[in-house]
């Protein structure tokens, strides 16, 4: 079931009766407008629809449940403050997603998290796979194993991998969000994938 199609659990608008509301699929945009006018049940309905996605994104980007909860809380508080500026030009989920990513990146900047970057003199080089490595292929990658491996990536690699391979951002947008070049974004993504490959092989060594 997509977030857009969830039925509103209870009355979200003062002028609509509970029965009417339960029968109506209320769009995110309508809920956002009601929330902007101070309607807390409407805002709660938005929370019910989207909190799992927001929390999951925060958790994957930080790799820490407590931090993820705090960031999800902050993201929803920011959402409440800014929901009035949502004009429905893009999908609500996209808008909320970008707001959450900004929130997490701002948190990283405050905390002084080092975003691994390729410098001219070169930093962490990618380990070239040689013929001496166990030739058996990596065991089948499942979602849980991949999630576990992602949590072990350095923060910079993790951020680029999540934004590109999981959330589907283009390199140009990632570069803008992180304040780096497109080339750096591509390079970090490749390093992240190679690192993940190594981590997944360590988790379940090929027989």
């Amino acid at each position: 079931m997509t977030p857009e199609s969830i039925l509103l659990p209870r009355s979200a608008f003062g002028h609509v009766t509970a029965t009417e509301t339960e029968k109506t699929q209320v769009t995110d945009y309508a809920l956002a407008q009601a929330a902007a006018a101070g309607d807390m049940p409407a805002f709660e309905a938005l929370y019910e629809r989207h909190h799992r996605r927001v929390y999951s994104l925060c958790l994957r980007m930080t790799g820490n449940t407590a931090e993820a909860e705090d960031l999800a809380q902050e993201a929803f508080i920011q959402l409440y403050r800014k929901v009035g500026s949502f004009r429905g030009e893009s999908a609500f989920t996209t808008w909320l997603h970008r707001l959450t990513v900004n929130q997490v990146l701002m948190h990283f900047r405050k905390r002084g998290v080092r975003m691994e970057q390729t410098t001219d003199d070169g930093d962490v080089p990618v380990q070239v796979v040689q013929g001496t490595e166990n030739p058996a292929s990596m065991p089948v990658v499942d979602r849980i194993a991949l999630d576990r491996a992602i949590s072990q990536l350095p923060p910079g690699y993790r951020t680029v991998f999540i934004l590109h391979d999981i959330e589907g951002h283009e390199h140009e947008e990632i570069a803008r969000l992180l304040g780096c070049s497109v080339g750096t974004s591509k390079s970090q993504l490749h390093k992240a994938r190679m690192k993940l490959r190594g981590l997944l092989r360590q988790q379940n060594p090929p027989q």
């Binding site: 909190h51 799992r52 996605r53 929390y55 999951s56 958790l59 449940t65 993820a68 909860e69 999800a72 292929s137 990596m138 089948v140 990658v141 499942d142 979602r143 991949l146 999630d147 991998f161 391979d165 999981i166 959330e167 589907g168 994938r193 190679m194 993940l196 490959r197 997944l200």
Partner: peptide, 19 residues
């Protein structure tokens, strides 16, 4: 192996976790 990682990553997006 990299291809398998990228494919699984695309699926991961649809799995959300509850706090």
């Amino acid at each position: 192996e990299l291809s398998a990682i990228v494919t699984t990553a695309h699926d991961v997006r649809n799995y959300t976790l509850a706090p």
